[in-house]
């Protein structure tokens, strides 16, 4: 937006784009079990990065490491680094709660808060840190976020209805609205369409294409067509006989799908397993 903003956030040169991430040697564990081993890859700013791989390859675990949600599971821990621009979110002086504030997440199963209205769902994150906002400001945020999630026209007349009263696809878009309402840098999406029908899936995919204008997006998907349709970069994860997931191949989506370097990637995308 303004010139001074760009100058003051010196670490980021082009502030019209969200921050990117860089993962280094990241491993995730559940107790003694290592779920993900040694992943190093970028999550390019303002792009959609798809994480694909067969079930159980650790891609969901991995994406939950990117906003430090994984460590909330009992007995779970993470080693390695994940940089948001030049700040390691696993550095000892970083507060995980604040990490999640900047790196939002949309989940596999739509999870609006059922006891809250649609309106309150959207501002749930805002209310946490901004106690004093006028009704007018909140109204604007709600409209802006719901428009951003392509849901405004469908719900503008029933903002006081429960979030649980919506259809599955609408619920998922409400969760996206809730996420973008707090203006994060990165949005992580963990198979956001797996519980949805094809039409709702199509709407979410359209929305993802719009969102990457403003946010860096990491998308876990089980669906290779979806990865090919919406992502700019693709990472292929696989758990071999070792049982932990590792990164097999990373590259521009077009390259991964047309000219994979690794034969396992090729086998997977051509449908030989998975």
């Amino acid at each position: 937006m303004s010139q001074e903003t760009i100058e003051q956030t010196q670490t980021i040169q082009d502030d019209s784009l969200a921050a990117g991430m860089e993962v280094r040697n990241l491993s995730a564990y559940y107790g003694d079990f290592q779920a993900v081993k040694d992943i190093t890859m970028p999550i390019e700013r303002g792009k959609v990065t798809a994480l694909i791989g067969p079930s159980g390859c650790g891609k969901s675990t991995f994406i939950r490491c990117l906003n430090r949600l994984h460590e909330l599971t009992r007995g779970a821990r993470v080693s390695g680094q994940a940089f948001l621009e030049d700040q390691d979110i696993y550095a000892s002086n970083v507060d995980p709660v604040q990490v999640r504030r900047v790196i939002g997440m949309v989940f596999q199963k739509p999870n609006p808060f059922p006891m809250m209205s649609i309106y309150d769902n959207v501002i749930a994150g805002i209310k946490l840190n901004n106690a004093r906002k006028s009704r007018g400001e909140l109204d604007q945020i709600v409209e802006h976020s719901l428009r951003g999630a392509a849901l405004w026209d469908e719900v503008k007349d029933k903002l006081d209805h429960s979030g649980a009263s919506l259809s599955g696809g609408q619920q998922q878009r409400l969760c996206i609205a809730r996420t973008i309402a707090v203006e994060p840098e990165v949005i992580l999406m963990d198979e956001p369409c797996s519980a949805l029908d094809p039409i709702a899936t199509f709407k979410i995919e359209e929305l993802i294409a719009e969102l990457k204008e403003r946010y860096t997006i990491a998308l876990v998907t089980h669906n290779m067509q979806q990865a090919a349709r919406v992502s700019d970069f693709t990472a292929f994860l696989l758990s071999g006989e070792e049982r932990y997931g590792r990164l097999v191949e990373y590259g521009p989506t077009q390259q991964i799908f047309t000219n994979p370097q690794d034969e396992q990637t090729e086998a997977y995308i051509t449908g030989k397993f998975g």
Partner: peptide
């Protein structure tokens, strides 16, 4: 408040505060 409600192209970090300061404390 004013910035949050602004248009789609709004940068996410607010003036005067580095993004990383948010991460830290």
């Amino acid at each position: 408040g004013n910035e949050t409600a602004a248009q789609l192209a709004t940068p996410k970090a607010s003036p005067g505060v580095s993004r990383h300061a948010i991460l830290l404390q």
